[in-house]
Design a protein around this nucleic acid. Structure first.
Lengths: 145, 145
DNA sequence: GTTGCTCCTCCAGTGGCTAGAGGTTGTAGC
DNA sequence: GCTACAACCTCTAGCCACTGGAGGAGCAAC
């Protein structure tokens, strides 16, 4: 038994799926790995930690490019953390904007659903409100999703 | 001057970009259009309305498949509107879930940013919290973005 | 007639994976 | 040692909803 974990085990431990791990390696988010004689990837604990870091950051909605920067920072702990701070702050702002936007959206959808006559489409507010944007209270130039 | 609008004008009026309009036609969201002798697309008012409908629905975060269904419903006003109602309700639920998830996310990011020592990475909470998921208060299996 | 704008088609790329084909390696049981 | 089977490998294509660019044609004004 050589020391190092197989990709499946690394996936289990980190919570990142096997094909996703390979994908991260491909785009250079993970350094090139050791392989066994049989060409299988070997993961050390540090690699699993790195994967967990990435997964957590993805859950928090950071883009892979931002994560790349955060990983570089993590690799050099003596650097000032202003960059990490800025990335987190930007993400926080983004999340807050999104929440505001979604709340407007919620209200608009609520209005649609409440207005539904449960009858025919011709008297249905859902369709009507969609058709007539001018009536809409949701006027952001947003990424609504 | 033939009656009908050029694609650029339809884009202006509907708020949908020119390549996006062509894309919608390609995937069958708009019916096949009239063309001029010179092979240019011609848009009637009804087409522009349809585009505006799509745009509005996209702003509200409906997927193109849902929009396809909504458009079918709009085309047949004598149908019961239960389907439209269901689509809108599902979207409303989705938005509410997302808001909850984003609020948890906001709190987590807030905690990260507040914990930043504005010093070196080695003492930075931002990196630390990312590295240590177990400390995280944000435990949804979410689509965080 | 020529400038310059809009339009046409077709193809490639985005982000962040996910799925599948087709082949190899490793392991457990007999 | 043999066989079955899981887990691995690479490579390619697909997902959504666009977006951008190349290279060419049409059209209006001067």
């Amino acid at each position: 038994m050589d020391h190092g974990l197989a990709i499946g085990r690394a996936a289990e431990l980190s919570g990142v799926k096997v094909p996703t791990i390979r994908y991260y390696e491909e785009i250079g988010l993970l350094p090139a790995l050791q392989r066994t004689d049989g060409n299988r990837r070997l993961y050390a604990r540090a690699d699993v930690d790195r994967l967990a870091f990435i997964r957590h950051a993805r859950e928090l909605g950071f883009e892979l490019d931002a994560i790349r920067t955060l990983l570089h920072l993590q690799d050099e702990p003596s650097q000032p953390c202003a960059d990490a701070d800025a990335i987190a702050k930007a993400r926080l702002e983004e999340v807050r904007r999104r929440i505001l936007s979604l709340r407007a959206l919620e209200a608009e959808l609520q209005r649609m659903v409440e207005g539904c006559s449960h009858g025919r489409v011709e008297t249905c507010r859902v369709i009507e409100i969609l058709a007539d944007h001018s009536e809409c209270r949701f006027h952001e130039n947003n990424q609504a999703a």
